[in-house]
Design a protein around this nucleic acid. Sequence first.
DNA 1: TATGAATGAGGTTTCATTCAT
DNA 2: AATGAATGAAACCTCATTCAT
Lengths: 198, 198, 198, 198
Amino acid sequence: MAPLNEEQLNQTRDHRREQIKAAALEVFARKGILGTKMSIIAEVAGISNGLLYHYFKSKDELFTSLVQEAMDESQVAMRSLYGLSGTPIEKIKVLTEDILDESSSPYFMLIHQARTSEGVPEKAKQLLEQYSMKTFINLLLPLFKEGQQAGELVEGDPDELIACYLSVLSGLTVINSQGIKVYQIPKTDMVLRMIARS
Amino acid sequence: MAPLNEEQLNQTRDHRREQIKAAALEVFARKGILGTKMSIIAEVAGISNGLLYHYFKSKDELFTSLVQEAMDESQVAMRSLYGLSGTPIEKIKVLTEDILDESSSPYFMLIHQARTSEGVPEKAKQLLEQYSMKTFINLLLPLFKEGQQAGELVEGDPDELIACYLSVLSGLTVINSQGIKVYQIPKTDMVLRMIARS
Amino acid sequence: MAPLNEEQLNQTRDHRREQIKAAALEVFARKGILGTKMSIIAEVAGISNGLLYHYFKSKDELFTSLVQEAMDESQVAMRSLYGLSGTPIEKIKVLTEDILDESSSPYFMLIHQARTSEGVPEKAKQLLEQYSMKTFINLLLPLFKEGQQAGELVEGDPDELIACYLSVLSGLTVINSQGIKVYQIPKTDMVLRMIARS
Amino acid sequence: MAPLNEEQLNQTRDHRREQIKAAALEVFARKGILGTKMSIIAEVAGISNGLLYHYFKSKDELFTSLVQEAMDESQVAMRSLYGLSGTPIEKIKVLTEDILDESSSPYFMLIHQARTSEGVPEKAKQLLEQYSMKTFINLLLPLFKEGQQAGELVEGDPDELIACYLSVLSGLTVINSQGIKVYQIPKTDMVLRMIARS
DNA sequence: TATGAATGAGGTTTCATTCAT
DNA sequence: AATGAATGAAACCTCATTCAT
């Protein structure tokens, strides 16, 4: 008599949630919170306006949950570097390309939006403060230190080095998207030059 | 109390316009178009809400006129480099510090906002397309070429070099503001390393 | 497992209807029409949202059918007084206690809600007009007249007496519920004093 | 050059506020919070929807400020009794008529709505708890005690007496409005009988 | 010119009701 | 019969812009 078994339901629900999150991520990352209308997200997700609120309590909650996810994913990406083979600088290159790659960058762009835009919900701001920058710096610290010892990276306070490197990438990430086709440049090498010893 | 003569009136009028523009620049640069309310601009300018509309037809017009001005000022700043004494890389350093300096950066930030934000009026977008990037590149081209010939800058297509350099600065500009005190880093040197020959 | 026969099906159906009505009565009586969400009724009834609509076409219909039932029950309660032994004032006391008793009052509260709240469906209003007050007055008229003749009740137009008495009870009913524990007062005696001859 | 002097402005503003409050009081008192649409208040006040928000931050704030005012006014009405000449029961009769009089009752109705309806803002609830009932009881306590000593009122705990008396009036107040023309009865005398010694 | 009240279009959110399974 | 996802109308609220003075 039950219309759908529990597993099927959960599957559908999870699928919908992902579908909505994917749509929201795309739009939020590109347009920021204020530039994003819930109706657009609904449209992109191919669902009705009201259904959004079946899955997320509010625009703020949706945005915040994406920020949370973005932070997690970013950390995973950074942690995974240590599993790769290669010299420190090579690993950093992988990370850089990953961030600058449009297809994977929405998460980084979202974080950028959350950091630099107006209208970001308080909770998202707290997430950023808790996790961000310092956390990322700590994650990359061993890698950069190793790079410095190997003489691959420039000297100086590694914390500052990483912070600056991430800031530049964060900025470039946005420039890179937006449909702004400034120039298709091999940016990776240039960014690396900031931190690489010649 | 004799009524003001025409010149005085014009002076007052111009003064008001500048006053409004200064306020608007500050707010737009920090909060973007969508994050900026006309009422806030009025408040910062110390005038009433309605008076804004005596001087600027609309929010869009106000924003666009600021973008125009920002482009002009940026060009002036770049052109003025050629009047300085010093090697190319030294001149580029001056420009970089100028851009990264918070107090002078609102214009650069505004341009960044205009390039990367949602809700930018069509006319402002056209301005950006007309003038921007290519124009700036052309302005800096002699300087960068000179730098390459002098062996101070890395080799490669100078257009790409400049575009990338400006993109990074554009991104950093926003990071730099926003009260985001991520880290107080001597960014200038690091940014320069992207383009400087070791 | 043999399929259920028709009678069993009907029984199930009726049972469900009662289950829903009981839930709805409780919630409507406490929160009024506008304060009551269909989803809450479903939850209280322990069924799904959609199933409500298999048994009742709409919120309005559900509410209206409850009002109908409440009217009927109230009349039954009043009619049953005549079967009791005791003096008129004693019977009225029984009725009063019955109405003020929280556990039995939902029906009276519902009628109160229907009379005094916004958003009451037209059909429920018609029911109230058709049946209410005048009907109740007529039901109680013999009792009150008898009481007056016995010198137990104050004199005056018995219709007015009853109307006022019921109005007061109606008002108290709501005060009494709502979790408003203003004061635990032996209200019955005081209310009776309004109509009882000293 | 100033368009209107400050006094004129304040006058206009105050007038508007009162106009809005009057409209809101009327509608809230009759329909409760949930039954009242901001657009209706605007319509009744003869202004645009948006202007409401120029004067009151939200529906909740508007409602709450009215509740505050209603509490104040009620207290004033009760305090003023002590300035009247006459016996205690005569003063209580004045109060009763005042409350039951339709024209002055909106305030009492609003308080009733705030006490008994769903959707009442938290702040309004706090106001009710702070001030209500106990405060009113204390205000009337001397009067009722005096009445008891004079043998005009029935005996018993005066707190309970007052609480019950006010509850009945509160309930009647709503019945009385709503366009429910149940019966035009001389209710005052009947209500008084609840508390008056014969 | 200058003010701040006033308007109204448009965005967010809720919830009765319908639909697919 | 039963479920819970899905829809869409309608309410609240914001803010660019206009208006009366």
